[in-house]
Deep mutational scan, measured.
Amino acid sequence: QTIHNGDQTYHYDNPEEAIKVAQKLAKIYNLTVTVKGNTVQVH
């Protein structure tokens, strides 16, 4: 599972963990989380 947060990319073995982290980032920075296959984008 990969999270793209602007210019930063994070890799997680656990998809659920990746989505949790993405949602935390989204709340902190007031962003949107988009899940596309194995990629979670925060923008």
Rank of each mutant, 00 (worst) to 15 (best):
A22N: 00
H11M: 10
T32M: 10
K27F: 08
V21D: 03
V33G: 00
K36F: 08
N5Y: 13
A22E: 01
Q41G: 02
Q1W: 02
I28Q: 10
Y29M: 14
Q41T: 15
Y12V: 03
N38E: 02
Q23P: 01
N30D: 12
Y12K: 01
H4L: 09
V35D: 00
V40K: 00
Q41N: 08
N38S: 11
D7K: 08
K36P: 01
Q41H: 09
L31E: 09
G37S: 02
V42S: 00
Q1S: 12
Y12M: 05
I19D: 04
K27Y: 09
Y10S: 03
I28R: 07
G37R: 02
N14M: 04
K20G: 03
Q8F: 15
H11E: 12
N5S: 12
T9D: 04
K20N: 06
H43L: 06
D7C: 15
P15R: 06
T39N: 04
Q41P: 00
A18L: 03
K20D: 05
Y12H: 02
A22H: 01
H11F: 13
I19K: 12
E16S: 06
K27S: 08
T32A: 08
E16D: 09
Q23L: 09
Q1D: 12
V21Y: 06
N5A: 12
D7V: 14
E16K: 06
N30M: 06
T9L: 14
Y10N: 02
A26D: 07
H43Q: 06
V33P: 00
A18W: 04
P15E: 13
V21G: 07
T9V: 14
Y29W: 07
N5E: 11
A22M: 03
V35W: 00
Q8K: 13
D7R: 08
T32E: 11
G6F: 13
V21M: 14
T39S: 08
T32F: 06
A26N: 07
K20A: 11
T32G: 04
N30W: 14
G6Q: 11
G6T: 10
L25C: 05
H11V: 14
T39P: 00
K27D: 13
H4K: 09
P15Q: 07
I28A: 04
A18H: 01
K36N: 13
I28L: 13
T2H: 14
Q23F: 04
G37L: 04
N5V: 13
Q1F: 08
A22I: 04
Q23H: 09
I28H: 10
A22S: 03
H11D: 05
K27C: 15
Q23A: 13
Y29D: 15
E16C: 06
E17L: 10
Q1P: 12
Y12C: 15
G37T: 01
T2Q: 11
Q41Y: 15
L25K: 01
V35L: 04
N5W: 14
V40D: 00
D13Y: 04
A22T: 01
Y29R: 14
G37I: 03
N5D: 12
I3P: 10
Y29C: 15
K36G: 03
T39R: 04
H4E: 09
K36I: 15
T34S: 08
Q41W: 10
L31R: 02
I28T: 05
T2K: 12
E17A: 08
Q1I: 13
Q41K: 10
A18C: 08
N14T: 15
P15K: 07
K24N: 07
Y12T: 03
T2R: 11
K20E: 08
D13E: 09
T2D: 13
N30C: 11
I19V: 08
V21P: 00
K20V: 05
T34C: 09
H4G: 09
N38L: 05
A22K: 01
A22F: 03
T39E: 06
Q1H: 12
Q41F: 14
T32H: 12
Y29Q: 15
Y10F: 12
E17Y: 07
G6R: 12
V40I: 12
G37D: 07
H4N: 08
N30H: 13
N30T: 04
I19H: 10
E16R: 06
L25G: 00
Q8I: 15
I28D: 15
H11Y: 14
V35A: 02
V35P: 01
Q1Y: 04
L31P: 04
K20R: 13
V33W: 00
V40E: 00
D13P: 09
V33N: 00
K24M: 15
Q23I: 12
K24R: 13
N14R: 03
A18T: 02
T9P: 02
P15C: 12
H43G: 04
D7G: 09
G6D: 09
H11L: 07
